[in-house]
Design a protein around this nucleic acid. Structure first.
Lengths: 138, 138
DNA sequence: CACTCAACTGAGAATCATTGTCAAAACCGG
DNA sequence: CCGGTTTTGACAATGATTCTCAGTTGAGTG
C-alpha cells in the first residue's frame, strides 16, 4: 500500500546478518521455484545452516522488498524464486517441473485493456501455463 | 479392500445424495469466492448440515467436473465459486473483493501458441487480474 | 575496548486448513 | 427385503506456516 519507504523515518533498516546473507546467496544458486523448506535444506547442505523460522521470515522480508517472486503451488505451498528484473510468466511441465520463462506483450496489453474497460486501476496479474513437455511425452 | 483398481473398469458415477445436493444448492446462493469452511458454516446456518470432510470431498469432486472454480487466496487457502460453463478468468478488486468474469480468445490463443512453440501438449493455464475497482478509488 | 540495547535468531509449541481413517448409514439393483 | 457398494462424519493425523521467548549478535557510544 505504501508507495515508497521513507528513508530515515522511524523504520529500521534490515540488518545484514550472516543468516540473511546466506539466504540471499542461496537464492542465486537455482533458477526455478523452491519451497521455504527446500531452501532451508539447501542451506544446511551447503554448511550454512539457518533456522527454519528465520528462513520464512527472511523470505517474507525479501518478498516485501521485491527481491524474490512468490507463487503458490497447486497444493497451496508458497514457493520462492529470485526475481528477475523483467516481468514474465512461466510455462511449467506438469510431469517433470521444468520451467520456461515466457513473455508476451500481447497479454500485458490485453490485461491492461480489460482492466481499463472495467475502470480498474493499479493493475497487476498472474499467469501460469501448465502442460506436458516434449521430454515427458516419450 | 480389493487388490488393484482394474484399469479402465467402471468409473462410478457420483451418487446424488442429500449432502451433495445441499452443497450444490448453497453454491448458487453467492457470487464471490468462499472457503470450504465458510461453505460448511453456511450449510449449517441453513439447517442442512454436512460434515466438513464431506464438504471438502464434494467441492473437489465438483472442481474435477468443472462445476466450480477453485482459486488460492493470498494466504494459501482454497476458495470456491460456482462456475459458469465457459472458460474465463477473473478481474478481482484488491480492496473490496468484487469479481468480474472476463474472457479473451486472444489469451487462449497466445498461451496455446507459446506452449506449442516449446513442444508442450495437454496445455492449461491460470490467469487472474488484480486491481482497484472504480467504487474503491473515491 | 567495554558496554548497552534493540534487532535478530532458533527450537519448539501453537495454529489452521486439509486429508486420511474407518465404522456406521444410505442407496441401488435384484 | 437382501447384499454389496458408495458415502458419510467424527476424529486423528499431517504438514506448512506462524508465534513465543529467552539467549545471541551487531552497531553505535563513551
Amino acid at each position: 500500500m505504501t508507495s515508497t519507504e521513507p528513508a530515515g523515518a522511524g523504520r529500521a533498516a534490515p540488518r545484514p546478518t550472516r543468516q540473511r546473507r546466506a539466504v540471499a546467496r542461496v537464492m542465486t544458486t537455482f533458477a526455478d521455484f523452491r519451497s521455504a523448506q527446500e531452501i532451508h535444506e539447501l542451506l544446511e547442505q551447503q554448511g550454512d545452516p539457518v533456522g527454519l523460522a528465520t528462513v520464512y521470515r527472511t523470505l517474507q522480508l525479501m518478498a516485501d522488498h521485491d527481491e524474490v517472486d512468490v507463487l503458490r503451488s497447486e497444493d497451496g505451498e508458497a514457493i520462492y524464486r529470485r526475481c528477475s528484473d523483467t516481468h514474465h510468466h512461466h510455462l511449467v511441465c506438469r510431469s517433470c517441473g521444468a520451467t520456461v520463462e515466457v513473455e508476451g506483450p500481447a497479454v500485458e496489453r490485453w490485461t491492461s485493456a480489460i482492466a481499463g474497460d472495467h475502470g480498474f486501476t493499479d493493475v497487476s496479474h498472474t499467469l501460469e501455463i501448465f502442460g506436458t513437455c516434449p521430454a515427458c511425452r516419450s
